[in-house]
Amino acid sequence: MNRRSFFRTCIPGLFLALGITSGIPSAWAQMDRPVTIVVPYAPGATSDLLGRLLSQQMGPLLKRTILVENKPGAGSTVGASQVAHAAPDGNTLLLATSTTLAINPWLYKKLPYDPAKDFTPIGLVASVPLVVIVHPSVKAQSIAELIALAKSSPEPLTYGSAGNGSPQHLAAAMFAAATGIELNHIPYKGSSPALTDLLGEQIKVMFIDIAPALQYIRSGKVRALAVTSSQRHATLPTVPTIAESKAPGTASFEAVAWQGLVAPAGTPAAMIEQYNKTLNAVLAQPDFRKRLESEGVEPNSSTVEHFGAFIKSETQRWSGIVKAANVTLD
């Protein structure tokens, strides 16, 4: 290529590229910047789905574009620390989970963010009860029978979880500690590979979010023994709670994961109020509620103050669970 044609083609290109990288964003900044909801999990996770549904519904109500940004990694700490250190201008929100706010402080000695100080709560979005499932070959029809089976079997029953320190793991470990049985923990990278191994009878038991397990419970490929919430779940009305089993040690058993929106600390209160109202308006839509319920997720709305108090009490509850389960990381 000769030099002239090089300049002729490339120089305008260069200017164009400069324009794209420098000029346009600054013009955007003066206009209405889109709101970003950071989802600290990989695309395809329950969190991701919730985030995308929320952005789809809240955007038109706020008359703003809401983007979902996946920042997966290290038990949601990567995404959480990014939002914790973002500008509190109301343009960056975090779809936090019980893991982000209530469990991680007890698992990690050093967190890159302070769950209590770095965030301002906006509102609860949903609670995600877990369900105890077993492979159909396991000879237990109820929680009481499962406990009896675990006590009588020569080798501890194996259970899978979405990872060390995941709510699934902690709930099962707390259950084992409370009922005095021994279970063999097999961690996986997320719920799906663990569920695959349960379907293939490589492992026997799982405490798992209802959403991914629902179709297998309905088709009889796995058997649901109980839910871990304090009340029965709408999608599984025939499945009792663990506390209903009346087995010793399970009287007040409750382990529910949840998801909520938070903003960086220092975000103006008026903005937080507006987000809370919009969020609750979305959560009140019957279609939206049905949508979440069909995913095994319980829509749950709250005021800003309520959510703040809820985070505090949950932090205490999970601290007890983490201690009972005797799990530490790093």
Partner: peptide
């Protein structure tokens, strides 16, 4: 990175 089995880094 994070060890899948123990969760240790």
């Amino acid at each position: 990175g994070t060890d899948v089995i123990s969760g240790m880094e």
